[in-house]
Design a protein around this nucleic acid. Structure first.
Lengths: 120, 120
DNA sequence: TCTATGTATCGATGGATGTCAATATGATCA
DNA sequence: TGATCATATTGACATCCATCGATACATAGA
């Protein structure tokens, strides 16, 4: 299985997440690109994380982590775990305000996923 | 956790898959809708299935199952499993041609997922 | 009907993942 | 510095999932 050098991978966030790939209807995915994409879709493919994203998308100034624990009926470690998954995928960033941590959505990263699914 | 009657769920395919939900930036997801969406994103969030979708998107007349076994370096039962997952999610349909089974992509279903991630 | 071939299903297995209790870390304030 | 509160990390556990070998089912042709 030949894996060629891939110039379509561009890190737009600087935090390790990589933009990938051409829209579904343009190029055929190789195994490497498929793995990159799948990792980011996996980050989205969880009910709790979708609810987190939904609340973040509705809050331009971010959301305090403590609010998720109240709203989503999950323990504090579980919320923290999900925020880490979203952060590692580059979909959410963290901001410290005093002793509270606020989360922000990275809309541009989500759009790259939407672009992949959108026909050209 | 109040789960209100959800009028945003519309079955557009007749095969059990349900359209869900308003775009990320419009409404806040409840637990039920989040589960529906997560199930469909889970179907996408696998490297092999992304490669299957990619190849189907590039083939208007469909793809023979046998070709996937050759191309994707997976056993025949594994390919069959992935096609079933995609079919259950309403993203792929099946057509029998003689003793061969051909798969077709359901672009409209994929677009509903893209719409969810696309800001309005 | 028998055989060959393509596909689906079953059962088992190893690894990934969501969850929480316990604990550690970090920040604020007295 | 010590107490308190918010968040992160660790460890354990149960469940889910991708994978494949074996086998069943289905279709076509002899």
């Amino acid at each position: 299985m030949a894996v060629t050098t891939d110039t379509s991978l561009v890190d737009t966030t600087g935090n390790g997440a990589e933009a990938c790939c051409s829209p579904l209807t343009v190029d055929i995915l190789d195994a490497h690109d498929a793995g990159q994409l799948a990792a980011r879709f996996k980050a989205i493919a969880d009910p709790v994380r979708l609810q987190i994203l939904s609340r973040l998308a509705a809050a331009p100034n971010g959301v305090c982590v403590c609010d998720f624990v109240d709203d989503l009926d999950r323990s504090q470690p579980t919320i923290s775990h999900h925020l880490k998954v979203l952060g590692d995928a580059g979909l959410v960033t963290r901001e410290q305000r005093g002793k509270w941590a606020w989360s922000h959505i990275e809309s541009a990263e989500l759009e790259t996923l939407a672009d992949f699914l959108t026909p050209r």
